[in-house]
Design a protein around this nucleic acid. Structure first.
Lengths: 348, 348
DNA sequence: GCTGGCACTCGTTTATACTGAGTGCTAACA
DNA sequence: TGTTAGCACTCAGTATAAACGAGTGCCAGC
């Protein structure tokens, strides 16, 4: 790795100072001046010298001062450099780790575990926790069932992956008898059971083409109905916890922006898009402030990690909080939570 | 009705003045003084006279002044008197009514309709809308199905009331074969289909006692499993929309309290309790400020109405907003929305 | 009983000055 | 050449005071 690029051609001392500055600022939220930094940092330097260095750092866009007579605060690039090469990751407290691990107990179902993970993330970090629901594409088709409601409304229940039950009402062109429905279900169960949903979807399309030439109307009907169910397969989704924690941060106390942020969580769509980007990143991924390129998150950072079981990436989890957060603690915690959630989902 | 009690022994003029004051205050959120009221109200009275009347109203606890040199604002009792006997209900705008009615279309399922109602309430009133999910007790049992997961974990799927699908995983003492499960389902479907959930629950208990003496183990097993499913029947629940609308009100801009309020929505429990109280009230029910006796709602009012279909009360819906709201518009709108939702659920 | 008048209250605004944290620059020092 | 002490300067924040104005309560007169 070319550290000279990573580090903006800065010498050791400047980097140490930047590190000290970020840590200090994260700690008490006040712009930090040369005087405190002089006492704070290991290097025994006078405030004046520090001011010189800070001037350089400011020129490089790593820090800035809110106004003339205030200290300096890190810019996004400053934070970036910090998290990329400066920060000393703190290992997660043993006791905490144990406690969290115990929260995931064996009798827990998928949804519960996800919910729990989100809650843990928010409670431990005192920020907002978010977990995407396990990806459905790689899930196995297990069982399907049709129930006639009214003449051409049919309730379809299908079970995926041992315990996920989905249901949907479809509208058909003609009326089916209970026997026909039973037959269709049997047909589908016999040929698709055990395949992944993605595969099933593909297979359905092929089956339709293929059967068209044949004359078995019953099969065509069955597959057509299945297609109804799978074509707009349930959207992805995620769970948020501890949104209200964000109301405690003074940097997010602007009602205007806070409202935007909360609405973003409700909308889901854009946040999902953002989380998707992290899905196939390896390990922890971080968006600092405007890096996310998403207006409502301007003042926030997002720390994520994908979680997986048996080599399969299932989803993403993370926390959202103010840019000024204790990255050195949050990052390892998000990381470990992802692993624990993955483990908890292993035999589900 | 004994108006002399209702009206705190106030003469017509005082009441008219109170009415004018409340309306004015609701309109522009500023304490209203004698001068504006003198111009505003029909009665041609000098500010001095109005001041005298206001002094009386203040003595009775209907209005108060935030400080010496401000106008007056209504107290909770003031609002109460206003909504009970003073307010002139404005009929809902025809165009709006039509628009709202069209939002509920026939192909909508129960959950969707509820969701929609909540959204409509929040969007039209620009406050938070809330709708409890239709009561499940009166719902019909339709179909049950058991699916074996692992040795003693069984996935139970049951369909209620034509389209509601519920699922739950139960743990059994012994292992059942697929055939046994099928048999159990058949048994339950044949004897309980069509009954209300409440009845089913009762029947199960009786069946168990009764069958105990008999020797048909299969039936006992079936009923025992059913009992597992029904014993802690899914909790009540509700849907909120437009929480973030509440962030626009200056009277709720205290972060501390706003956080409390949002957390109350998440907790659900207490809010549900409050809504429950309205379930069997006839027509619109209103809690003004502290009347709800629920801390987080201190600065808020809740306007609710039960909704029903075919004579059966299904749930409650309403809006939550600042005490200072346009009751004369909100009340009829909540009322009519309840009716429309009821109608939309009629043939579901 | 209603009204005009008047003294009074008190939150809000505006102006002014003061404070203190922090800077940039320069000159001297090692 | 890098470091430091010193000094003038900037500027947000706070305090103080004065002026303002919206509104009141009360009283005397119509």
């Amino acid at each position: 790795m070319n550290t000279s690029i990573d580090n903006h051609n800065l010498d050791e001392r400047s980097l140490l100072l930047l590190k000290a500055l970020v840590e200090r600022y994260v700690q008490d939220g006040q712009p930090v001046g040369s005087r405190v930094l002089s006492k704070d940092s290991q290097l025994n330097l006078s405030p004046a010298t520090i001011r010189n260095v800070m001037a350089d750092l400011e020129d490089m866009g790593l820090i800035r001062s809110p106004h003339t007579s205030a200290g300096r605060v890190p810019t996004v690039s400053g934070y970036r450099l910090f998290v990329d090469s400066l920060l000393t990751v703190q290992s997660v407290d043993k006791a905490l780790l144990n406690k969290v691990n115990n929260e995931f107990n064996a009798s827990m179902e998928k949804d519960e575990a996800v919910e729990k993970a989100s809650k843990i993330l928010s409670e431990v970090t005192r920020m907002a926790g978010v977990v995407t629901l396990p990806n459905r594409e790689i899930v196995q088709f297990r069982h399907i069932e049709f129930l006639k409601l009214s003449n051409n409304r049919i309730l379809v229940i299908f079970v995926a992956d041992e315990q996920e039950v989905h249901n949907k009402i479809i509208h058909t062109d003609r009326t089916f008898s209970a026997a026909e429905l039973q037959q269709a279900a049997n047909y589908l169960n016999s040929i698709y059971a055990g395949e992944s949903l993605a595969d099933v979807r593909e297979a359905i399309v092929k089956d339709l083409e293929h059967n068209q030439q044949q004359v078995n109307q019953a099969m065509i009907d069955a597959v057509t109905m299945a297609q109804h169910v799978f074509e707009n397969t349930p959207h992805e989704d995620y769970v948020v916890s501890g949104q209200t924690n964000l109301m405690d941060f003074s940097e997010l106390s602007n009602m205007e922006r806070l409202k935007q942020l909360f609405e973003a969580f409700n909308q889901k769509q854009s946040v999902l898009h953002l989380l998707d980007k992290c899905q196939h990143a390896e390990g922890v991924q971080i968006f600092i402030g405007e890096e996310s390129d998403y207006e409502p998150f301007q003042e926030c950072s997002l720390v994520t990690a994908p979680y997986s079981a048996e080599g399969q990436v299932l989803g993403v989890l993370g926390v959202i909080g103010p840019t000024r957060m204790a990255y050195e603690k949050v990052i390892p915690f998000v990381d470990v939570t992802a692993k624990l959630l993955g483990a908890a989902l292993k035999n589900r």
